[in-house]
Design a protein around this nucleic acid. Sequence first.
DNA 1: AATGAATGAGGCTTCATTCAT
DNA 2: TATGAATGAAGCCTCATTCAT
Lengths: 202, 202, 202, 202
Amino acid sequence: MARISAAERRNDFVRAAVEVIANRGIDGATTRRIAEQAQAPLATLHYCYDSKEDLLADVFEFVTSRFREAIADSDPHADLAVTAHAILRGVMEFYVESASLGTTALELINWARRQHGEHAITVYDKAMETVRTALRNAAADHPVEPETIDQITYVIACLADGFGLNWLTYGDRSAAAEQMQISASVLESWLAARLESSPAAL
Amino acid sequence: MARISAAERRNDFVRAAVEVIANRGIDGATTRRIAEQAQAPLATLHYCYDSKEDLLADVFEFVTSRFREAIADSDPHADLAVTAHAILRGVMEFYVESASLGTTALELINWARRQHGEHAITVYDKAMETVRTALRNAAADHPVEPETIDQITYVIACLADGFGLNWLTYGDRSAAAEQMQISASVLESWLAARLESSPAAL
Amino acid sequence: MARISAAERRNDFVRAAVEVIANRGIDGATTRRIAEQAQAPLATLHYCYDSKEDLLADVFEFVTSRFREAIADSDPHADLAVTAHAILRGVMEFYVESASLGTTALELINWARRQHGEHAITVYDKAMETVRTALRNAAADHPVEPETIDQITYVIACLADGFGLNWLTYGDRSAAAEQMQISASVLESWLAARLESSPAAL
Amino acid sequence: MARISAAERRNDFVRAAVEVIANRGIDGATTRRIAEQAQAPLATLHYCYDSKEDLLADVFEFVTSRFREAIADSDPHADLAVTAHAILRGVMEFYVESASLGTTALELINWARRQHGEHAITVYDKAMETVRTALRNAAADHPVEPETIDQITYVIACLADGFGLNWLTYGDRSAAAEQMQISASVLESWLAARLESSPAAL
DNA sequence: AATGAATGAGGCTTCATTCAT
DNA sequence: TATGAATGAAGCCTCATTCAT
């Protein structure tokens, strides 16, 4: 067996874990199966990680960072509405493009909520903060009340989560395409009404 | 031990399971713990149910029927928009009022998706169909294209799921109250725009 | 496999554990080996005991109660010196007659000291208290200072432990017989000198 | 990494092992922990020692030699009784002064008895022989029957072991001081009676 | 020579389920 | 009918040791 650095090995395990979690859920993600997926003996997993929880923490980090990339990957010069749209679309596309990452993300959020209430909140908060920051930057020229930013963030989160749940349940790619459109239009309508109602903010 | 009918016994187990699932998640819902919560011997559980899966199926049925009640509990004389609102609010209130049922619902949806893709779809479909039917009835006087009904259903589902995930993660009751408002306003704006754009449908 | 009550099964496991501990030490007393010695599947052990520690606690109780029986089994009408002798002899005979119980006792004391400092002290104290009580009773007619009782107790403990260690190491039965005589004579000389020096106590 | 001779390395491991054994017992003395205590990579331990057992053998040798030093460190011109006292006191002080060495000694004796009955006997014999030799030398002017020397040796061993067990269990330094006195007086009384009864030996 | 990487064997415990009464 | 007793399979983790560099 080729000797590779522990860091690389850890990566292997993280990737294997993502796959196993996506296919069999968090409960089905046993160390045995993860090791098997990584084509490594079980003991090797514990050589790289002190505990399963440590591994899952890394998986968590891996998934959430990919998630945040999807959020943050928007044009910095766009205005508030455009940015909001870009974010929503980015997240939805993240789900569709990488179903196993998306499924895993959902599983992990759920798991974190159960096992580590505060941890889950932290992660959720981080993701939301990323959105808020992007929105704030987009509104730099026309400062908007923080409350408004919070609300937009919440709506994006709702629409994204709702879309994700639906897509991951049905797995219907063409329906998903249509639903992305609808979700976008929902955001658009609400944003138009919401921003109009506080014109001073623009 | 008091003689109890088998049916009542099963009910006890279902209720116990809901409680255990809410508190410890699907993974933590072992037969032992469910039996303990039901204050019954472990063997009795398997006397009432052939397998854990059978019990969970009943739990599923129990939770989803409560869920559907929350959906269906709307004024039959209201119009389309009002009905849509009532449904969305009903579901959101269902989550807030009965956190343990809400949490369990989420856990089960997740579990079903994983273990029984088709089963999950069936359940989801049933819930959606309940919504669709209610909407169709509300639009009886002014028939609406089926496609429009589907879209409204999808949006309600998104907003409800998004709200639920958020609420169950944060558990912040006052934030939830505000978010219910926002979710309602999102639905309102979109409905207004959506229905206006196909006036013939009204 | 005959169905027997859990209480009886626990007895089986306790006896098996004594045997395994005597033969292979506390470290060698794995649940697997104990179950094997009891001719039961490993899982059955955990049906009877929640944890290995619980089993060991029972073993502890079993051994120490046998130990205390050996101590307490003396003529209630004897005087102080005679009682002290009887106790010492009782303990030494306990070691010799049941080597595996004796070895296990030593292993457990050691283990308890390591794992549960306070627990070990408690057990030690209990044994010592049994000795003290017996001595006090024997001296009922001629009250003796508590300090004197404590000292006699300590000396008996020293001589008994010293004998035990030696016997369990060498396992030489004829040497043991001789050593019991010597130990007795040591106690005798000291008691004579000790009690003479505080005649008032007699 | 500083270049250190293999011998020094081995010494480090021996010392580390003493510490670990004292703190966590023989079972808790894993190669990992010993290596960690020695601030050396795990593999280095096996580079210096073929097996854990080899290391423990060295530890054994280290501890017993310190032990023998404590025994042998007595005035060569003293008479039999004085020498016996000096030895007993030396051993007891060894226990008190160096609790971690004392604890380790006890652990190792126990371990050796279990794993290597004969080895343990050898070690015990060596220690006893050291005592015997010292006693014999002290009695050089007034030859004493070998049997008497053996008996004194046994009594010293009993009192020392009994004291050690007690002290290592309670860890009460002031009680230990008092108990040393008592142990000494026990030896004294018995020696007086014993040696008087065979005056020819003097 | 020195050490990070790797691993088979075995540790304790818990699971859902079946058996015998 | 009910239920205490029983269990094979699998869970996570740690051990002493060896391998490859």
